[in-house]
Amino acid sequence: MEKQQNVLQVSGLNVAVKSQKGVLPLVQNLNLELKPGKILGLVGESGSGKTITCMSLLQLLNQKAMHIEGSIQLHGRELNGLKEKEMRCIRGKEIGFIMQNPMNAFTPVYTIGNQFVETIRIHTELTKKQAVDLAIASLEKMNLQNPAKIMKMYPFQLSGGMLQRVMIAISMCLRPAVVIADEPTTALDVATQLQVLKELDRLRTECGTSVLLISHDLGVISELADEVAVMQNGRIVEKADVYRLFDFPQHEYTKKLLQARPVLPVNEELSKLVI
């Protein structure tokens, strides 16, 4: 019964790359579960295997060069080893993906509208007009002004923050069960960053989507996550409730991460106000 409640259940995930020198493990014995409407934060320094983990959840890694073992279950359905054709129905429809760099996530030769409608029509039976309406409605929800105009624009005409919100709109408009957000705000400036985080939070309260939030910034994690998993060298070294992790870190590496936070007087003042 316990297992049924999890939207996404990853158990015993091992990813290794085959190289000339032999097999090099990237992710080792990784267990994760995403509960409905919850945000799981995944932290770790660069090169600790965060991105590889989410690429393997979506089966986006090159199967010939990589070795993926273990079970990835979405609503009890095994994803590891699914055929490419079946996987395509899941990507975008059931698992949304928000990439780190919005500039590289779009094709520069098609308009935003073209790419948006394509995603919608592949997964639904909507007519072109209905798809356009849905796209405009979801852009509007993302606080983007004049969505009809944005639909006719090309990716390079929008700023990074706007594109990132367009990408969230695309990944959320089909109400996926899970959204994987890989460093969604790293490329953005601070004011836009908070706005994007707010949108993510709003969508998960409205649609009940579970989010796997990957970041190296503990600020992002403490703002949004319910649970946190800390990764180091391809392993999860600690997993706890976000409050517990910040108050009582267990693992050496977590303590080191927490110490690396810049300390501002404003945070202390704020905490005084709250308490």
């Binding site: 601070v190 960053q193 908070l194 910034d217 503990l218 600020g219 992002v220 403490s222 703002e223 996550a225 976000v242 409050y243 910040f246 936070r261 810049p262 300390v263 501002l264 404003v266 945070n267 704020l270 905490s271 709250v274 308490i275």
Partner: peptide, 8 residues
Amino acid sequence: ILPEHPRN
């Protein structure tokens, strides 16, 4: 500014 602790 992002909080340094979830309580903020």
